[in-house]
Design a protein around this nucleic acid. Structure first.
Lengths: 229, 229
DNA sequence: GACAAATCCAAACACCTGTTTTAATCTTCG
DNA sequence: CGAAGATTAAAACAGGTGTTTGGATTTGTC
């Protein structure tokens, strides 16, 4: 279960296969990527993938899980914020870590690209990924937004606001093929993350503030009079 | 250039090939889809794709363009709004038409799925699609948001707000594989579009309003005093 | 150093792919 | 009708795929 956070063990063939697979699956896709290419890049024989993983699909599943674990290890969703932080700060941290994972071009840069492919064509590996890694993250965001919206907000409002946050973040990776064609010369990197996360956070907070206001027009004045911290 | 808006000509092999191709490419992906499957579904011989389109890639390009044209013909971006409508109304129409194109499960339901795959792995066909169909739509949104933000807003603010709108919309199609696993039993259809577009519009407008306020703290009072229509 | 297990290797297997070829059939129209 | 052209059909082609095999090599352990 515990996956090494700094996984540079250049000697182990199995590990080299996982990393080569992540890289090649990410920019070729599952079907176009060939085990021959993967083994060549890993410096291993063609039979190695069968020896260590059984088949190509299983190797893919391992690569996907590994990439995600690396990305979350590098940029944890709470960015080290204490539990006592304000919901606003937590939301900003969530968004920032999300964007960093999506835009980082560092070591496991394939993480986001693998995810994109998984969304275009889900494989069985997605189910375990959602349950093991995505769901806890999702629930954390849910709680942050619930704190901001207040208890009076409906479940559907909560869900939609959730989707708005995630959608805004994802677009900076997903939409890249279109953005780069519409506006060449404006590729996004981790250097842009502070500005992007500030924008998404403030836009979302403004929306949430208005929703909260619309929802509880006849609540006790007291709760409305105290401006949020 | 003009593509028939109601393209049910059951007899023409070429047209049947395009439609079968759109369907199969959409749920198999370019590489996994086989010309044998496509021809079988179209009731044509294997050599037909070579006869009519030259090769598989060219057939794919035709199917992609056709699907997009159908979707925009069914749900035009301005939803029939007059040019004199308020920017707020135009924004709502843009978002609503966007969501309808993404969530419609009607005849060319492959449109959005083909697009998802194109984003995961762009092909040469994406370049012409962006230039012919996506760019005009993008510029229209740009203008709407510029009208809402005011002339003082920076280009980067404009771009980011743009991305926020598109990202929120796209997520309801893109994120479906994850949403359906996180929250089974809440699939989105065109029936949800009014609620979704209302949410996205109001959240975005609240964000824009606040940005406009932050940008021009020392402008002539007159422009700020008149509430927007 | 010797034995056994783990690992690696080159080759072959069985299958599926997009594409082409060659001929048969249908359509069009003088 | 009947020839010219457009369309369809069946089969084969050439290449690439994941996977398996059986033996060589390395590694770990006494």
């Amino acid at each position: 279960m515990a996956i090494p956070p700094a996984p540079i063990l250049p000697d182990k063939t199995r590990q080299r296969l996982i990393e080569a697979a992540g890289e090649i699956f990410a920019d070729q896709g599952f079907h176009r990527a060939t085990v021959r290419d993967i083994c060549a890049r890993a410096g291993a024989n063609i039979a190695a993938v069968n020896y260590y993983f059984g088949d190509k699909q299983s190797l893919y599943a391992h690569a996907l899980r590994y990439a995600h674990a690396c990305a979350f290890a590098k940029y944890p969703a709470d960015m080290g914020l204490p539990a006592s932080a304000t919901p606003q700060a937590k939301l900003e941290a969530f968004i920032r870590s999300f964007l960093l994972r999506l835009l980082d071009a560092g070591r496991p840069a394939w993480h986001a690209r693998l995810m994109t492919r998984e969304l275009a064509e889900p494989t069985p590996a997605l189910d375990v990924l959602v349950n093991e890694q995505i769901r806890p993250n999702f629930l954390a965001l849910n709680q942050i937004i619930r704190d901001l919206l207040g208890p009076a907000a409906s479940e559907s409002t909560l869900r939609m606001t959730n989707s708005s946050v995630i959608g805004q973040c994802l677009f900076y990776h997903f939409g890249a093929p279109i953005s780069s064609r519409l506006m060449p010369g404006h590729p996004h990197t981790t250097a842009d993350v502070p500005a992007l996360s500030a924008h998404i956070t403030s836009l979302t907070l403004a929306g949430i503030k208005q929703m909260a206001k619309e929802i509880e027009p006849r609540r006790a004045r007291k709760t409305r009079r105290r401006k949020e911290v």
